[in-house]
């Protein structure tokens, strides 16, 4: 089976990109939260439980520089979300067969 990396750059408070991705993403695929998408990685938000629930069947990553830029470095993130840098972003793109941006 192909492996898919989903990229989400929208805040879950503003757009439905995360919802649509979670609805259509297949078990075993990965999600990388970038830009305003990183707000979905923060624990204790009203969206956190939905994201946390999917860490069981999806691998979820968040882009560290975008987390830091938004003042979230000291905020607790959802358990099992992995922080990566831009080199990690490149590795994720290379390791997955394809990627899809949920703009």
């Amino acid at each position: 089976m192909k492996t898919m990396l989903h990229l989400i750059n929208k805040s879950p408070f503003e757009k439905n990109s995360l919802d649509s991705c979670l609805r259509l993403a297949q078990s075993g695929s990965s999600i990388l939260l970038i830009e305003d998408g990183v707000y979905a990685a923060v624990a204790n938000t009203e969206h956190a439980h939905r994201v946390a629930a999917r860490t069981r069947d999806l691998s979820i990553y968040v882009l560290g520089p975008d987390v830091a830029a938004r003042g979230l470095s000291d905020s607790p993130l959802i358990d099992d979300i992995t922080v990566v840098d831009y080199e990690g972003f490149v590795d994720l793109v290379a390791e997955h067969d394809a990627n899809q941006s949920w703009l």
Binding site: N9, E35, D36, P65, Y86, E87, F89, V90, V93, A94
Partner: peptide, 26 residues
Amino acid sequence: INEGPFTHQASDSAYRFTVAALAKGH
């Protein structure tokens, strides 16, 4: 890249991704 330099972060993100990809030998 679908957005310009001044309204969205897209081009900045793409630039940093591109620099990192080149550094990794891609």
